[in-house]
Write a protein that binds this DNA or RNA. Structure first.
Length: 508
RNA sequence: GGCCCGUUCGUCUAUCGGCUAGGACGCUAGAUUUUCAUUCUAGUAAGAGGAGUUCGACUCUCCUACGGGCUACCA
């Protein structure tokens, strides 16, 4: 019998959710949906030192914005609650004790300070310090201390940790859904801390394995940075006797900087001018801010489409896909093995694609918000007309104003280069004549003015380019924008004539 | 340093032993347009290097180089 697919996204609330984290969440979500399984959000807040207020809310809001729906989680609840590890703390100690009782782990009484200084002195000699089978008997641990001594130390309040007793010289064979078979010799691994008495909390490794088991997780899909700890996780499952029901693993390639070395970081975004986070973030303590895709004007569909293709593809040339299509097409064996450099230019291209698909009235409503802020009075109807006129030339809604300001306000100045090029010879006189012609026009619709003006140009054998560019200079102030007749219709007869008059007197 | 993972156009990638190596972004040129942009067309550009297996290798194996990750009482 196939077991029910249950996957989880398990971020740590230590700050804003990174774009790579969103991708991990997305792949988990797509996998769950495709297999009619469950997508779980588990908050891994076992590091009391690094906890950041607001980070959990940020994670939830980010996923909501992306359209990644959570089946079970801190806000949604579920049969396996609680989903916040800090609320599950009493669970973990028992499992840590089980490991000690089965001789797979042991108490260690050395303090972090002792270890740091020891590590430093060893490294000063150019050697590598590893807390493993070669040295563990040199420390105060339950491996060498008598049972009574261990109890006495614990009772008198000495701090302790539980460390995993990593086997010596054993080859661990693992399977990764993306990378295939992997083997590691346990002698290269160390005795990881699983539980710490200082805050009565487990470390990631213990909490993760215990919760994945308890929550009946079927597939662990996570970032490649976890690959080195996969042998430990295998060994933990084995020590608990859960090897036959452990989840399958898939380690995702990392997101790399657009240029240079290393993985994508907040600094890259700051330096190159693109967001690294889905939403804007304000650090609660420092007040430091980081821009977000939402605030930068990206559509969530576009954002999702873009990150979905970072490290995965459907195997054909299709690039524009919505969540339903992604769900249908997603496959772990089409996930790439190597890290993907992030390309901000392509991100923009995706948004312009989605811009064209967007409904005009929806876009217009967003545009109206900006117009209002600028003190521009505009009806929804008008905004829709403007939108349909300019959207094909934009990537973000924030581009709208720059592409349409001349519809809402007359030019106060005129582009010098365009003036030099077109406001010469007979053109000023021609504009005066054109003004007379337009003053007589009753029906100011684009189609009517267009045919009238074109006829006038033809019958008088006037140069089309000179006339139209001069008119554009007069009406817009520079050499850009959609069809002149559309613009004239939009601003109306009165305004058109006014602008011609103003330009003639101003440029005289 | 050690361990693990990876390596096709500048970037994201297709190819699962037969390739004249395909698509997209970007860039360049041309066409369309009254302008700018859009759009369309075309061009640019890749299998890290070396051995081996094979009739045949981008695809499989090994070595080297390079890149990435991990190496905390962080996740």
């Amino acid at each position: 019998m196939e077991r029910r697919v249950r996957v989880r996204f398990a971020p740590s609330p230590t700050g804003p959710l990174h774009i790579g984290g969103v991708r991990t969440a997305l792949y988990n979500y797509l996998f769950a949906r495709q297999h009619k399984g469950d997508f779980i959000l588990r908050i891994e807040d076992t590091d009391s030192q690094r906890f950041v207020p607001g980070a959990e809310e940020y994670i939830n809001e980010s996923l909501r914005w992306c359209g990644i729906n959570i089946d079970e989680g801190v806000n949604e609840g579920g049969d396996y609650a609680p989903y916040r590890q800090s609320e599950r703390r009493e669970i973990y100690l028992k499992y840590a004790m089980d490991l000690i009782n089965s001789d797979n782990a042991y108490y260690a009484f050395d303090t972090p300070e002792e270890l740091t200084s020891l590590r430093e002195s060893v490294e000063a000699k150019g050697e590598v310090f590893a807390y493993n089978y070669t040295v563990r008997t040199e420390f105060a641990t339950s491996l060498i201390l008598s049972k009574e001594e261990v109890e006495e130390r614990i009772n008198r309040g000495d701090q302790w940790v539980v460390r995993f007793k990593m086997p010596e010289n054993e080859i661990i064979h693992m399977k990764d859904l993306i990378r295939g078979d992997i083997a590691v010799n346990t002698s290269t691994l160390d005795d990881k801390v699983l539980y710490k008495s200082a805050d009565s909390l487990p470390t990631y490794h213990l909490a993760n394995i215990v919760d994945d088991r308890l929550m009946e997780i079927s597939h662990v899909i996570r970032g490649e940075e976890w690959l080195p700890s996969l042998p430990l996780h295998y060994l933990l499952y084995r020590s608990f006797g859960w090897s036959d029901i452990q989840p399958e693993f898939a380690h995702l390639p990392l997101l790399l900087k657009p240029t240079g070395k290393g993985k994508l970081s907040k600094r890259d975004g700051d330096k190159m001018g693109f967001p690294v986070f889905p939403l804007k973030w304000v650090a609660p303590t420092t007040g430091e801010t980081a821009r977000g895709y939402r605030e930068d004007g990206y559509f969530p569909e576009s954002f999702i489409n873009m990150i979905a293709l970072l490290g995965w593809n459907p195997g054909n040339d299709q690039e524009i896909m919505n969540m339903e299509q992604l769900t249908e097409l997603f496959s772990l064996d089409k996930v790439g093995k190597s890290g993907a450099r992030f390309d901000p230019e392509k991100a923009k291209w995706f948004n312009s694609q989605y811009m064209q698909k967007r409904d005009n009235s929806e876009l217009a409503e967003s545009f109206l918000v900006e117009l209002k802020e600028r003190g521009v009075d505009c009806s929804l109807d008008m905004a829709i007309k403007v939108t349909s006129m300019i959207k094909e030339r934009t990537t973000f809604i924030s581009d709208f104003w720059g592409e349409s300001f001349f519809i809402f306000e007359a030019p106060k100045s005129f582009d010098e280069k365009v003036v030099a090029k077109f406001w010469k010879g007979e053109n000023p006189i021609r504009m005066a004549k054109l003004r007379e012609l337009l003053a007589e026009v009753e029906d100011f619709s684009a189609s009517n003015t267009e045919s009238l003006v074109h006829n006038w140009i033809k019958s008088n054998e006037l140069p089309m380019g000179q006339i139209m560019n001069s008119l554009r200079l007069v009406i817009v102030g520079e050499s850009k924008g959609p069809s002149m007749f559309d613009i004239c219709e939009m601003i109306g007869k009165e305004e058109t004539l006014k602008r011609i008059d103003f330009a003639i007197s101003e440029l005289a």
